[in-house]
Design a protein around this nucleic acid. Structure first.
Length: 419
RNA sequence: GUGAGUGUAGCUCAGAUGGUAGAGCACAGGAUUGUGGCUCCUGUGGCCGAGGGUUCGAUCCCCUUCACUCACCCCA
């Protein structure tokens, strides 16, 4: 029986790597411009971290976690998201004592046990940014701007849209929840089965339901915006004004709800066309209570995540640029030995060099062509006799004779002209 | 967890009322015994997803199972 990869876990094959590298490089570049530094927490954490951090009534925690007990009997979980992990690291190492403002990002795999679908896998990768220690709507706006900046440079602004909302804080949200719940109870016979359950556990989610009868029933429901306390309301206005100042185009979506419990005030989502139903490319928001819930200082933060596979799906294919030479050698032991030392000399000079021994001359040429090498070096008995090399330009088919002694120097010059 | 669709060569896909399979691309070799791409020729490659049932005989029909895809749910 052939062993195959586990469901929902994919190999990233060589052809796809250029896109992944571009994605990672762009992320590092953009985030560095905003003063963010990289961290790398482990992928395995104590299960309790996510219970406390994400909220035990969320779908993620209730049914999507890869949880098991390790050999010491502790319950551990493959992280379903990164924020709780990064904050755990910040708290554990007292980073906020060294600097009360922390701007961090991390890249890596996350795990959720869900039915795989386009843009949704059981092992998937996220880009995650967290910004801690600034109580200011400007910090919120700048964080959203950074997410928008990254998405824009990767995908172009045209296919993107950003939606913003405020979820209020622990002062004003309960009032809204209660009002919403009693509104929903009054109309519960029109709600779908799921929503009748959600009505009690997480009434906000009902607003987001896609079932038409629910959308209908929700008409005229209390609006979160009107319940926001004065603090939240002015804060939200300031965030929106700052977004405009930053040139970020967004739309308000009072129904935008996040799946994780820890969000307060600002939340947002970036969606892209072309992904089918999993069209959220990024999402995030402010979490003023999460640090303290996790046992840290009473400091707020804001962050977001990008789904890397979703970005990759939208990025154009790229090719490995190949700059170097392919060495074609006639199949005689003496020639092959010389070829070997030439290759090694080239590599020492930081020139990419490759050969395919044990192949016919023609086959070697074909490989040189297929691998898209701009130059091909031909080494045969004649060249060895005369202490020269034949260099062939694969694009123009021109050939030059080069003295063996100055070969590396010459090749460097020739390659410098190829981009 | 629910629903629908699909599993045949490395990839994309044909196939017959049930008689153990083909194409294109890719790969390898040759036409050109030291010259790639284009062309032509040849070749390698398949337990027809797995298990069971019906049948003289199943890749095809039936059941089961697994996987993939899309959608729901939920999310990045």
């Amino acid at each position: 029986m052939e062993i195959k990869a586990i469901r929902g876990m994919n190999d990233i094959l060589p052809d796809e790597m250029p896109r992944w590298r571009l994605l990672e490089e762009t992320t590092r570049e953009v985030f560095a411009r905003y003063g963010f530094s990289e961290v790398r927490p482990p992928v395995l954490e104590r299960t309790e971290l996510f219970f406390r951090g994400i909220g035990d009534e969320t779908d993620v925690v209730e049914k999507q976690m890869y949880t098991f007990t390790d050999k010491s009997g502790t319950s551990v979980t493959l992280r379903p998201e990164a924020t709780a992990c990064v904050l755990r690291a910040v708290i554990e190492h007292g980073l906020l004592n060294k600097d009360p403002i922390q701007k961090l990002y991390t890249l890596g795999p996350m795990f959720r046990y869900e039915r795989p679908q386009k843009g949704r896998y059981r092992q998937f990768h996220q880009i995650n940014a967290e910004r801690l220690g600034e109580e200011s709507p400007l910090a919120d706006a700048e964080t959203l701007a950074m997410a928008y900046d990254l998405a824009g440079t990767l995908l172009g602004r045209d296919s993107l849209s950003m939606e913003v909302n405020s979820l209020g804080c622990k002062e004003c949200r309960p009032g809204f929840k209660d009002a919403l719940r009693s509104f929903l109870v009054s109309r519960q016979e029109r709600l779908c089965e799921d929503c009748r359950r959600r009505m009690n556990t997480n009434p906000l989610r009902v607003l987001d339901c896609k079932v038409i009868s629910c959308k209908d029933a929700v008409q005229g429901a209390p609006v979160l915006e009107t319940f926001l306390c004065a603090g939240c309301s002015t804060y939200h206005e300031a965030v929106l004004a700052s977004l405009e100042a930053l040139g970020v185009s967004y739309s308000k979506n009072p129904l935008l709800v996040r799946g994780l419990d820890y969000y307060t005030r600002t939340t947002f989502e970036i969606t892209a066309s072309g992904l089918g139903s999993q069209n959220a490319v990024s999402g995030g928001g402010r979490y003023d209570d999460l640090l303290s819930i996790l046992g840290g200082p009473n400091v707020g933060g804001i962050g977001f995540a990008f789904g890397m596979e979703r970005l990759i799906l939208l990025m154009e294919e790229r090719q490995h640029p190949v700059k170097g030479c392919f060495v074609v050698a006639q199949a005689f032991p003496e020639v092959e030995t010389k070829a070997l030392s030439l290759i090694s000399e080239l590599r020492s000079a930081h020139i990419r060099a490759e050969a395919a021994f044990g192949k016919s001359f023609k086959a070697q040429m074909r490989r040189a062509d297929k691998a898209k090498y701009p130059l091909c070096i031909i080494l045969g008995e004649d060249e060895i006799q005369r202490n020269t090399l034949t260099v062939k330009d694969m694009a123009t088919a021109e050939q030059y004779t080069v003295e063996r002694a100055v070969a590396v120097h010459e090749l460097k010059a020739l390659l410098a002209g190829k981009e």
